[in-house]
Nucleic acid binder design. Structure first.
Lengths: 147, 147
DNA sequence: CCGACGCGTCAACCAAAGTGAATGTGACTA
DNA sequence: TAGTCACATTCACTTTGGTTGACGCGTCGG
């Protein structure tokens, strides 16, 4: 049987539909596909996409739009293009989040830049030293994130 | 004369090339197109893009890649997909890019996590040690990105 | 009641994105 | 010098993103 194209959660389709439902003037209903296409094209000064294509995207008949069109759509709805990459954000591992936090410290950023290119041998020595420092300062063992 | 496709500033091509130039292990030159394509495909578990396509993108022969591919590329270089979306990421400094490159090294990532929370005092000691290691290994002074 | 209008839906079509295999080229080496 | 190897480059080909035009349906005004 033909695979029924269901709007996978986190897909472009579901996100786009959510935009339509959510982002619109308070005194009226959601924008229509032709409206959005029209507005985008007018603003761009040339044809960017047609109404049908928006429909296909919302239906999941077309996934994976191009850079420029996704940007235009995000722009129209006033959201960051990152909105369509959210899964990427959600997939951000715990390690990545802790890294991001640590890197807000200027000293640590400098340390990274300095350490870049060092041999594994040197890195090992430095790691040992850091472990000692942690112990001396009474910090817990890292490696696993606290719940 | 035939219109020479020059890498327009802020274009995908120029940004991508900048990534190649900037984000790579310190002890070697930039990644090659086949390398990157290979890495991306391996990580994805299926074919995402070929080496030729990367070349075309960098040369400006192909503009406007697909959502998924752009995501894969950004992911490989450890930058947000926003990097390819104009203005918003104009702020992204070279330092951040070099950080991204360095953080692809697992040892360095671990070091960051370990160092997080240490006192400035300890950080200073570690920095000193790293500087020594750099000197011993004959690495140049960092801090400024080579032109 | 009915014709016009606009939107969602569909399917055939077109153009651009992306591929694969062959060729050119420089570095490294026997 | 010849041979090899890996990468950049090229181009003909395939795939799929995106368009065009037609059809059905609900709504509104006469």
């Amino acid at each position: 049987m033909p695979v029924e194209e269901s709007a996978e959660a986190g897909s472009i389709a579901s996100r786009l539909n959510h935009l339509f439902e959510t982002v619109h003037p308070a005194d009226r209903g959601p924008y229509t596909n032709p409206e959005v296409a029209q507005a985008i094209n007018t603003k761009a000064g040339h044809q960017v996409l047609g109404p049908t294509y928006l429909w296909q995207l919302r239906k999941g008949k077309r996934t994976d739009p191009t850079h420029s069109r996704l940007k235009a759509i995000a722009d129209f709805f006033g959201v960051s293009p990152l909105y369509f990459y959210e899964e990427e954000m959600a997939k951000r591992t715990d390690e990545q989040l802790r890294l991001a936090g640590a890197l807000r410290n200027a000293s640590i950023r400098q340390m990274v830049l300095d350490a870049d290119g060092l041999s594994e041998r040197s890195m090992a020595a430095i790691t040992t030293m850091i472990q000692s420092a942690r112990a001396m300062e009474g910090l817990p063992d890292p490696g696993v994130a606290p719940e």
